[in-house]
Design a protein around this nucleic acid. Structure first.
Length: 288
DNA sequence: CACTTGACCTGTCCGC
DNA sequence: TGCGGACAGGTCAAGT
């Protein structure tokens, strides 16, 4: 579910909500969701204060005073929701998607010593939370192979185009979704940026011209920055750290808009399968 | 090797 | 308001 803009939105929320709070306890209802030994949790999580909340690709990093980090991947259906100590049953925000927590999808609960809680909910159990020594975070498999951050100021068009040389024979959409090429792109922003650059998703990487890479680079950054501004995309169950939906899909041009007119030319948007994923294009603007 | 497909899970929606 | 099947935003292991 969450791609770079959604994870970044959660990060910004947590940055305001949990810095300085002290962990009082942690429990997991599903061992796969939080595979750490109880002794590590007692030693390095309980009593720790939150120093920093970072993001790398689609991964959240909650850095603790014990020199350990909670590494969190939300995969398809993960949520990370903070509920303060003063919230009672009656007072849900009107735009909230979550009811009382914990609920059936709650896999991990972090309790803070002031009575507030951080809930990791994950309907499909693909996501995970891991407690890792902070210096070892760059060495976990995912971190070792993930590509550069596309929104960093020093990430250039040239760098962007060069990354695709790793996957010359595959489709541009498969390459965009490959986290080792560029970090943080998922199905929504792949489709939206390809529409913006007028590139057909099934086009082979080796056929893409330098001008098209330049276009795609601009579109990808524009689309992701707009989404962060709108609080991300809520298609089914994404929510931010306060349980609220994002509104980017109101501004999307093709994603989940099959049958509706292309905003540029009016041709109906179509949906088909590409790189194993549901894919949305304007068949007039994006020719194979 | 480069690339594609299936598996991991649960829930929802659609057609019969 | 039953049942089977397809599908869902991600990533890895296994297969071609």
């Amino acid at each position: 579910m969450p791609e770079l803009p959604e994870v970044e939105t959660i990060r910004r929320g947590l940055d305001k909500l949990i810095i300085g709070r002290v962990v009082a306890g942690a429990e997991a209802s599903n061992p796969k969701s939080f595979p750490n030994a109880p002794s590590d949790v007692r030693q390095f999580l309980v009593g720790a204060s939150v120093q920093n909340v970072r993001r790398r690709a689609k991964v959240l990093l909650i850095e603790l005073s014990t020199n350990y980090t909670l590494v969190i991947h939300l995969k398809m259906t993960g949520q990370l929701v903070f509920i303060g100590e003063k919230r009672f049953g009656a007072g849900h925000p009107t735009d909230s998607l979550v009811g009382d927590l914990p609920d059936r999808s709650t896999r991990v609960i972090i309790a803070f010593d002031d009575g507030s809680h951080l809930y990791f909910n994950d309907q499909r159990k693909f996501g995970w939370v891991r407690l890792v020594p902070t210096p070892e975070v760059p060495n976990i498999d995912f971190m070792k192979k993930v590509g550069p951050e596309p929104l960093e100021a020093d990430f250039t068009v040239r760098q962007f185009a060069e990354r695709f040389a790793r996957r010359p024979g595959t489709s541009i959409k498969a390459a965009l979704l490959d986290q080792s090429v560029v970090a943080g792109v998922g199905n929504i922003y792949a489709d939206e940026s390809l529409w913006g650059a007028r590139i057909h998703p099934a086009r082979k990487v080796s056929d893409i011209k330098p001008r098209q890479f330049a276009n795609l680079y601009r579109q990808l950054r524009a689309v992701m920055n707009l989404s962060i501004e709108k609080g991300g995309s809520t298609d089914r169950n994404y929510v931010n750290a306060e349980g609220q939906k994002g509104s980017y899909l109101d501004f999307a041009n093709v994603f989940r808009r099959q049958g509706q007119p292309c905003p540029r030319c009016g041709t109906p948007i179509i949906k088909f399968k590409c790189a194993g994923r549901g894919t949305h294009i304007c068949p007039h603007c994006q020719k194979l």
